[in-house]
Design a protein around this nucleic acid. Structure first.
Lengths: 71, 71, 71, 71
DNA sequence: GTGGTCTAGACCACT
DNA sequence: GTGGTCTAGACCACT
């Protein structure tokens, strides 16, 4: 999983500035990408620290969409 | 008034380092909190000594917002 | 008035990142400088836009230090 | 020169807090030690960064004691 | 051993 | 692509 520059668990992903710089995109674009990964549960973000790959990502239940069943 | 962890007049509040440690935040964040208490007149800060609770804090007139009524 | 690098009214001053880079200081330090100019009424700051020189700055009456003479 | 835990050129020396912790002395004591090394030209200190060992320390001319001869 | 201020660098809110 | 705020951690001023 880490052979071709992919991300490893418990390692910080490159910062928003770095990603923006690296891929020649706007910081907002980098931010949106991180936001999407976060919503999918693939990374967790800590203010002032960075974003980190989660070890066991969920298989399809984003935090914001979950619906507690009444029964 | 001091039974449940509340602050007592003329007693130093926990230091910035202690508060940062206690609440798991950076020292700068703890400093900002102290700064707010200072602006509200609730504590006074002495360099090299600590911050102290004032005995008779203002009842609702922060330095920048005060409005002297005419009547 | 703008010949030797001085600031012009209604023009943004260099960004915090630029100033930090220019003078070799941390961004927080550049921010503190801007904060002082703001408190003196020399610039106004708009989030996401920048800081701008005011046209008619106060002539010497900072909010906290002003002393109305009786005579 | 680096065999028994001694300091290496261009490497930061342990911080004041670390030294104080390591040797069980007060921070003030650690600070005074660093100050003496600084006065002897053995280390240079950068605010917010740390103190660094100089490569070619002077052989006996501390910065504060030097006397410019008039002749 | 406290509060004061700095470096470095991260994400956040907004335009 | 700006200003806002945070983490982490260094030395400084003072008592």
């Amino acid at each position: 999983m880490t052979e071709s520059g992919e991300l490893a668990p418990d390692r910080p992903i490159p910062s928003e500035n770095h990603l923006a710089d690296e891929y020649g995109v706007a910081r907002l674009t980098a931010r949106r990408t991180a936001q999407e990964l976060r919503e999918r549960g693939l990374i967790v973000t800590v203010r002032g620290k960075g974003s980190f790959v989660v070890e066991h990502p969920p298989t399809g239940a984003p935090a914001d969409d979950e619906d507690k069943p009444t029964g």
